[in-house]
């Protein structure tokens, strides 16, 4: 990791699914997200948001261009190295939480450190700390089935935070929450951003998009810097 390097640097990154017919899910794009940014990525469904998430989250490899994560060229990495990079540098938050139903909140959070060589006792300690950070210090032993949607998503955020990632990648984090819980959650994300965390939120919700310090719009597989309204005006001009 190079401290000065941007967290995300897309250099002509594109993804084409081989056909027939070939589908250009993401057209070659340039994008730089600096450390400490709070970026929202918006776009209508089918615009390529998921493709962006998969590439940025190292879940899928681009077919064109170079993707540098923390200054590391991800294109030359072996699969196991991409997995390791993903596990150590990225914290994921999903719309459907993806919590393990039979494990307590604390156990769910410790899972994030299972593969990165953190000793067991240290995992429990850090998980407790992360749960306190998201305001769930009193719910550590609760099962996800006994928690509200807002609480579950906060467990998921604690799980994403606990490994000290350089990037928090949130995919529709408020999609399954009511507006009050969504607001609590976004405030939590803003708090994390103020603490210096790089946060990328992918959403189709304009209210959520407005909370970001910077907005990136995806339209028809092309990344544009700026909120969707501005992008549309730009296109008209």
């Amino acid at each position: 990791m190079t401290p000065s390097a941007p967290v995300i640097a897309f250099r002509g990154v594109g993804l084409t699914y081989p056909g027939p017919p070939p589908v250009e899910a993401l057209k070659p794009s340039e994008l730089t997200i600096e450390r400490g940014d709070f970026v929202t990525v918006v776009g209508p469904s089918g615009s390529g948001k998921s493709t962006f998430l998969n590439i940025a989250g190292l879940l899928d490899a681009p077919t064109a261009g170079t993707y540098l994560l923390d200054g590391i060229d991800t294109g030359v990495l072996k699969d196991s190295e991409r997995t390791a990079l993903r596990g150590r540098h990225i914290g994921f938050v999903f719309q459907s939480f993806h919590l393990m139903p039979h494990r307590s909140a604390q156990e769910n959070v410790t899972l994030a450190m299972l593969y990165t060589g953190v000793p067991r006792a240290e995992r429990a300690r850090r998980a407790a700390e992360a749960l306190r950070r998201v305001g769930l210090g009193h719910r550590m032993d609760a099962l996800p089935s006994r928690m509200s949607g807002g609480e579950r998503q906060r467990v998921a955020i604690a799980r994403a935070l606990v490994g000290h990632p350089s990037l928090l990648l949130c995919d529709e984090p408020t999609g399954n929450l009511d507006s009050r819980n969504a607001d609590t959650l976004l405030r939590l994300l803003e708090g994390l951003h103020e603490d210096g965390m790089t946060v990328v939120v992918i959403t189709h919700d304009a209210d959520v998009a407005d909370r970001g310090a910077r907005t990136v719009t995806i339209r028809d597989g092309v990344l544009h810097d700026g909120p969707s309204r501005a992008v549309r005006e730009q296109e008209r001009a």
Binding site: G57, L59, F92, H98, L111, L114, Y115
Partner: peptide, 16 residues
Amino acid sequence: TGEIGLRRALGARSRH
């Protein structure tokens, strides 16, 4: 399958 995907996202290799 969801759990497997999550584990992969958290750094589990396919062999794990």
